[in-house]
Computed example of a mutant assay.
Amino acid sequence: MTIAPEMLDARYSAPQPDLSQSWLREAIAGVLTQLDTMLPRFTTTFPAASASAGRYPAVEKVDWTEGFWTGMLWLAWEVTGDDKYRAVAEGLLDSFEERLDKQIKVDTHDLGFLYLLSCVNAWKLTGNIRARDLALRAAELLYRRFNATAGVIQAWGDLNDPARQGRMIIDCNLNVPLLFWAADETGNSAYREAAVRHLSQAARYLVREDASTFHTFYMDIHNGQPLRGDTHQGFSDSSCWARGQAWGIYGFALGFHHTGDTTQPELARRLTHYFLNRLPEDYVCYWDLVFTARDNACRDTSAAAIAVCGLAELLKILPLTDPLRPAYVNAIALIIRNLSTHYFAPPQDGLLREGVYNFGRNMGINEPNLWGDYFYFEALVRLSRVWTPYFC
């Protein structure tokens, strides 16, 4: 049964100034200046997942996030045509190849984040055959994580570990595009079928009736029955982790692009309303949507940036006559302007201050993080031109 979305908060009905091309050019120029200060330090290594005291340590093949650095380099190359960005991004293919060859940190669904933003985009933008081959190898590894009985891609860890089997998480909505791409590239329909089934299970079990989301959900891999939902990074099992809600908005909007399933954008709309209706006065979310102004909670700017990209993707799908389009356009303007005005990071490393990696584990709190930086840059590029997302 389809459940209607919450009524959208009246705050978004008031007309907002347009995001002019001059404003967007200035915001993108600020991003490029910041990337240029970081570039000399990260030509053979990567910024860590999150900054420490405002500065990114250098790492190599240790996390799920390295692709966001190459993603920003490719965005910068698309925007400027300057081959210094392309040269570094292509040079880092060595690291992504070694990761596959030596099986370093590849027991994860985050192969999508890693290889869509480093290799698939390199293939699409420049015809780099090596990048294509690496991405196809990564897609095969991701496909092996699919359990046909449960209909889900296992999030993390050894596929034979009973404690991890059958666990899907909302983040995977942004990883399954690697399988859709590989299916189109090779003609292997099994990749597409796995991605479609996973998205279907995510819609059925990760999304609650009120359009909030579980971070994680367990399926029985032996009989396919649902077991339980819980959280890995949210405030509680029953709360709504802000970044997870943003992954859902973006991922279900992308689902329509890949499948043509009209239930996907409607689901993205429901998640969007839940998200927008729980934003504080400056429209930049707390790290969990359970919090209000009286809780003095940390923001998560990365979740805000992801949500903007997801809402922009949703707008590409909705009819021009959709009565809520003006409110969604206003919401995008409110969020992105406040991120740019109040949370842009210089003189630190990174693009956005006040991100949260994992609050419960005291990781990356009130610091820039690499995915927040990437999606902020993507949002600006999306809004400034006609652009094909790297997740399409």
Results as ranks from 00 to 15, higher is better:
I104D: 12
D230C: 08
D300Y: 10
E193R: 14
A379R: 13
P177M: 11
S50H: 15
G260V: 07
I104A: 12
L279F: 05
L178K: 04
V290M: 08
E98Y: 06
K61M: 13
S236V: 00
D300N: 12
L19Q: 04
I332Q: 05
E378I: 02
N338Q: 12
P40W: 00
M72D: 13
L24N: 13
L370F: 04
E313H: 10
E281Y: 12
E90Y: 00
W69P: 15
H109G: 09
D322Y: 14
L111I: 05
R228A: 12
V120G: 01
R337C: 15
S238R: 05
D220W: 09
L276D: 03
A327H: 08
L116H: 04
L125A: 06
A327M: 14
N175P: 13
T80S: 13
W69L: 11
Y390K: 07
W371S: 03
N128A: 06
E313D: 10
N188Q: 13
G360R: 04
R243G: 01
I249T: 05
P368V: 04
N362S: 08
R145H: 10
W371D: 03
K124E: 09
A139S: 08
I129Q: 09
L315F: 05
G67I: 01
N362H: 14
A163T: 12
L125M: 09
W74C: 02
T263C: 14
R361L: 12
N121H: 03
V79N: 00
N160G: 15
P346Q: 05
R270V: 08
T33N: 11
D230Q: 09
R197W: 00
Y12W: 14
L199C: 09
L227H: 09
G244D: 03
S52L: 08
T213G: 03
F256W: 15
F214S: 01
G360Y: 01
A242G: 00
F377M: 14
L100W: 04
T2P: 10
G30D: 15
E90H: 05
A27T: 02
Y374H: 02
N121E: 06
M38C: 07
V120P: 01
L178P: 00
D101Q: 09
A312E: 14
A4K: 13
V329G: 04
L206E: 12
C119E: 01
N121I: 11
V106C: 06
Q264C: 14
E26H: 15
G255E: 14
Y191M: 12
N188A: 12
L279V: 01
A29G: 09
F291H: 15
Y376R: 07
D101P: 01
G251I: 04
H257P: 07
H258E: 10
S239E: 06
Q16W: 06
L125C: 04
N366V: 08
V308Y: 11
I28Q: 07
A305T: 01
E367M: 08
L19M: 10
R132C: 02
I221P: 05
T186D: 12
A58F: 02
L314S: 01
A138V: 02
W287H: 08
E26W: 14
L141P: 00
L320I: 13
I306W: 05
A148Y: 03
Y85E: 07
D161S: 13
D282F: 11
T43Y: 03
T262M: 15
R385A: 15
Q103L: 10
L380A: 08
D282Q: 10
T301W: 11
